[in-house]
Design a protein around this nucleic acid. Structure first.
Length: 974
RNA sequence: GGACAGUUAGCUCAGUGGUAGAGCAUCGCCUUCACACGGCGGGGGUCACAGGUUCAAGCCCUGUACUGUCCA
């Protein structure tokens, strides 16, 4: 064994061995425990967020596997329709290859499959390297043949049950990708815009008198979308708005189009917004659409799929992009001088237009929410198209057949699953988010005008009649359509989430009722981020409840987001992403900068990204290994909080690995299994036979029981941060700092029974602790366990399949723990004197003890040799009450005085300062405590036990203070 | 506008009623035979603010401020 732990060597070896030996596959007859991986998108490679969640899932998987469960972690990837199609299109462009349109559907899809193979391969390699113990024999992809069959099946069944419909509806349209998207894929961003006020002349020369007493022949409408006025089919006012009530039922002449449109009353209109008159464009606004339905208004679509103006408007606007159209509409309205409603067209001296001007009444600045596509970033248009929807809000079937509509069939059961506690969110507060969304849900648009995805299993005949079925043959058979009747399959594909919503079922073989499905459904826990609670979590619950009449998972553990050191979200465009393997293997600053600044959508940001990278990682990133990275994630996985990734912390845990490594070397050397000089393995001494267990042995065994109990509790509560802290603290601050040190004098002594006791305890405690740590740090624990286990008479092939340690309360030894606490206090006293009196650590010192209690005296006798060894004491002498102590530096352990004679060497000022400091703190505390005891409220109100404790504390502090004062007087007198 | 979360040591964060903790950073001493990716010791916090409940509040309640996220 080398002196320094080298992660890369052991990682490569164990990944292969575990997988080859089938350790990742479910086995045994224990209770099933299963986790379905949230399938990563085949859009590239895994990021820190994946590595984080995989660490959590693998820790849970390994823990339950060791704890005897029949454990399955199901792997796989998601085809991710829009996202993947975009990546491939961009790659084609960068490579100068023919575009999607030029290739055509079939050839383009070949390219996507090629990319999918590459991406899924990279992802699986990354998962393997992280040590994730997924069952590769079950690896799935959402477009596998079997999976695709399940996707079709769940669509057809929902359709048969009257829960799917096709209809011409206003949907969110992405004019860049030229597809419909769902409500969830829309991000609303506040942007600076304008509110244009237009005059619409009343038709037939009508006039009215406004509140100011002016006679007007027009009304003013306010809009943020001037170009849509070409599709206006009404003007609306609030029914109780006295300003306009008398105009309801009259008409206005729509400028530029010269169409007569009605003035309607509807309480959707906010009289306080703008002028209180709203232009209504039912084909291009969701609210207007609803209003149009109520008033039976015609719909005039004025846009093409690319959001240019179509041919259903006056000639001058046809073919214009929506931005240009907006400018032209406003300019034309401003220039309209021939309308009776027009204002004079004037300009300031500087040539700036003066409003009102023509038919433009005024233009004011306005902040508005602009809807953009979450993938393309394009400004979306509400657009009227034929799409497929899942009914989620109707009471009864939309087709009039008997049965429940989506509200009762799908939405309510999903709410009920969480409300009833059958699904538990961790942390709990996420269920509020879940309920809020489901209680305000709309029908789900599941068709996408893309090529990459599952083709919708619907066929059209020449008359436009649509037939749904599992395949064309079934459709023909079911509807009696002869082979001569031409049928054409729907060109569109499903929303990606309409395939991943059955992930927990379809990966187990659904719709077949397979053994796997029976055994591993519902899964035990879903580990995911809050960002896909709506997209994915809720929809899996819907489908699971609908098709399996059971929840898809029992717990939902919501992890925080992994952020950069400044707390920003990591994203490629911000240039702050980290590849988890770059933390594992290390990367130079230059290489990291190169990685972050190549292939940028906007190359102009490169200098900024470089500067930030130089600031965050001035020396690049040191290699820390997989175990350290996993431990870092575990330690930072506080419930309900985002994780700021801190490379320094990962380095700290790399050091921790080294500590473990060297502690193990110590153990192996001390049982003779390792040659300290050569690093070669040797034959260990026998640990069989009778032993004596020292206080230290009993202490560390006792502490281990408590650690085992904590570990179980922390797994149960998903508190990986506390688990990591407990494991860290035990091995470093207890086992290494104290227990190992306490065994050293034993090993140098001649008591063979005590030596064997110490050796056996060293080995056994380490062996158990390695198993406790294994779920978080699989590699180093396996590597060391292989060497330590035989000494503990363990014969298993791998630590992975060994039982997870369970606490034995009978081995808790409070007396031993109290003894060791006393011993630590004694050591601290001597070390403080050494430190502050500048006594070199190697120089043996004599120690005098005064003011001992009976218990002190007994412990001194018992631990004399240990303490002398560890504190490098020359001697320990207990002074009687009458004995005069020489001039010394003092430390206190309770009221016992630990004196180190300074024989004239004492720095009087330094020692007085030290004592004064101790006294000041003590006096402060004492004053506070005495005040509390003097308070009637406290004495009358607090429980007796608390009062007793307080009294004892005050007595103790008084005694300590007296001792300190006495010592202070003695030193002053020198 | 509504909802949720956060505000504790220089930094990143634990701490669900009984005198504030960790890691990193920092200062001093030490290359002592497991480990300098180490050991020992030290310094550093009016727990965002204001009220309230309680014998007792970082913790419970109310309000305010700021930060972040989601929804409208």
């Amino acid at each position: 064994m080398d002196k320094t732990f080298d992660p890369s060597r052991v990682e490569a070896q164990w990944c292969q061995t575990w997988e080859a030996d089938g350790c990742y596959q479910p086995s045994g007859s224990g209770k099933p425990y299963s986790i379905m991986i949230p399938p990563p998108n085949v859009t590239g490679t895994l990021h820190m967020g994946h590595a984080f969640q995989h660490t959590v899932m693998d820790a849970l998987t390994r823990y339950h596997r060791m704890a005897g469960f029949d454990t399955l972690w199901q792997p796989g990837t998601d085809h991710a329709g829009i996202a993947t199609q975009m990546v491939v299109e961009r790659n084609l462009k960068l490579a100068g290859e023919p575009s999607r349109a030029e290739l055509g559907r079939e050839k383009f899809l070949d390219k996507v499959w090629e990319w999918k193979k590459y991406s899924a391969g990279t992802i699986s390699q990354q998962i393997r390297r992280m040590g994730s113990s997924v069952d590769w024999s079950r690896e799935a992809f959402t477009m596998d043949p079997a999976y695709s069959k399940a996707v079709v099946e769940h669509f057809v069944r929902l359709h048969e049950d009257g829960l799917i419909y096709r209809g011409k509806r206003l949907v969110n349209w992405d004019p860049v990708l030229q597809t419909a998207i769902s409500d969830l894929e829309v991000v609303q961003e506040e942007e600076n815009g304008k509110l244009w006020h237009f005059r619409y002349p009343l038709a037939n020369g009508a006039t009215y008198v406004n509140a100011e007493g002016e006679t007007l022949n027009y009304i003013v409408v306010a809009t943020t979308r001037p170009e849509t006025m070409l599709g206006d089919t009404a003007v609306a006012v609030h029914p109780e708005d006295e300003r306009y009530q008398h105009l309801v039922g009259k008409t206005v002449m729509l400028p530029l189009c010269n169409r007569e449109i009605p003035i309607v009353a509807d309480d959707y209109v906010d009289p306080a917004f703008g002028t209180g008159c709203v232009k209504i464009t039912p084909a291009h606004d969701f609210n207007d659409y609803a209003l149009g339905q109520r008033h039976k208004l015609p719909l005039i679509n004025v846009l093409t799929k690319a959001a240019a103006i179509n041919d259903d408007v006056p000639e001058p606007y046809r073919g214009l992009d929506r931005v240009l159209a907006r400018k032209k509409v406003v300019a034309d309205l401003e220039a309209l001088a021939d309308s009776t409603a027009s204002a004079p067209i004037t300009s300031t001296e500087e040539g700036k237009p003066v409003y009102p001007r023509g038919l433009v009444d005024k233009i004011v600045d306005h902040k508005l929410k602009v809807p953009r596509g979450d993938r393309s970033g394009a400004v979306l248009e509400p657009y009227l198209t034929d799409q497929w929807f899942v009914d989620l809000i109707r009471e009864t079937r939309h087709d009039g057949q008997p049965g429940n509509g989506g509200l009762r069939a799908i939405t309510k059961p999903a709410i009920d699953a969480v409300e009833s506690g059958r699904i538990r969110f961790v942390p709990d507060n996420w269920k509020t988010t879940y309920f809020h969304w489901l209680n305000n849900i709309q029908d789900w648009c599941i068709s996408r005008q893309l090529w990459w995805g599952h083709r919708i299993p619907a066929w059209y005949d020449g008359a436009g009649q649509v037939y749904v079925g599992r395949d064309e043959a079934e459709v023909r058979a079911k509807h009696g359509l002869a082979a001569s009747v031409p049928l054409k399959q729907d060109e569109d594909v499903f929303d990606t989430w309409f395939s991943s919503d059955i992930w927990p079922m379809a990966t187990l073989g659904w719709p077949e009722n397979t053994e796997s499905l029976k055994k591993y459904y519902p899964s035990s826990v879903l580990v995911t981020g809050f960002d896909i609670i709506f997209f994915w979590v809720a929809r899996m619950v819907m489908m699971g409840q609908y098709f399996q009449q059971d929840v898809p998972f029992k717990d939902v553990f919501i992890t925080g987001l992994v952020r950069d050191p400044e707390g920003n979200k990591m994203s490629k465009s911000k240039g702050n992403v980290l590849d988890p393997l770059d933390v594992v293997d290390g990367i130079t600053l230059d290489a990291l900068i190169a990685k972050r600044t190549t292939g940028l959508m906007n190359p102009a940001t490169a200098p900024k990204i470089e500067a930030k990278t130089r600031k965050d990682y001035p020396k690049g990133i040191e290699a820390v290994g997989v175990d350290a990275l996993r431990f870092t994630f575990a330690a930072l996985a506080t419930n309900g909080r985002d994780v700021r990734f801190d490379a320094a912390r990962a380095e700290g845990y790399r050091n921790f690995c080294n500590k473990i490594w060297n502690a193990s070397r110590f153990v192996l050397i001390n049982v003779g299994a390792l040659d300290a000089e050569t690093g070669e393995a040797t034959a260990a001494v026998s640990l069989d036979g009778e032993v004596t267990l020292s206080t230290a042995d009993r202490w560390i065994i006792s502490r281990l029981q408590k650690l085992e109990a904590e570990a179980a509790a922390h797994f149960e509560a998903y508190r990986f941060d506390l688990l990591a802290a407990s494991l860290y603290q035990f091995i470093w601050n207890e086992y290494c700092d104290w227990y190992l040190e306490l065994t050293k004098p034993v090993m140098q002594g001649s008591d063979e029974l005590a030596k064997r006791g110490a050796r056996r305890t060293l080995v056994r405690v380490l062996e158990v602790w390695l198993r406790l740590l294994h779920p978080i740090m699989p590699f180093i624990t396996e590597e060391i366990w292989q060497k330590v286990a035989p000494l503990a008479q363990k014969t298993g092939k791998t630590i992975m399949l060994e039982p997870y340690p369970v606490a034995n309360p009978e081995r808790i030894d409070e007396a031993a723990e109290a003894d060791v606490e006393w011993l630590k206090g004694f050591m601290l006293g001597v070390r403080q004197i050494r430190g502050e009196m500048d006594i070199p650590p190697g120089k043996p010192v004599p120690v005098l003890i005064q003011n001992t209690s009976a218990a002190d005296a007994e412990r001194i006798a018992r631990f004399e040799s240990s303490v002398s060894f560890l504190a490098r004491l020359e001697s320990i002498r207990v002074l009687g009450a009458a004995d005069e102590a020489p001039q010394s530096a003092t430390a206190l352990l309770g009221s016992m005085k630990i004196l180190v004679p300074m024989a004239g060497l004492i720095d009087k000022a330094a020692e007085l300062a030290r004592l004064a400091k101790l006294k000041a703190k003590l006096e402060n505390d004492l004053k506070m405590n005495e005040a509390r005891l003097a308070s009637d409220k406290f004495v009358n109100g607090a429980p007796a036990a608390v009062i007793d404790k307080e009294r004892a504390r005050v007595a103790q502090q008084k005694a300590e203070l007296a001792t300190l004062s006495e010592q202070e007087a003695r030193i002053s007198a020198l």
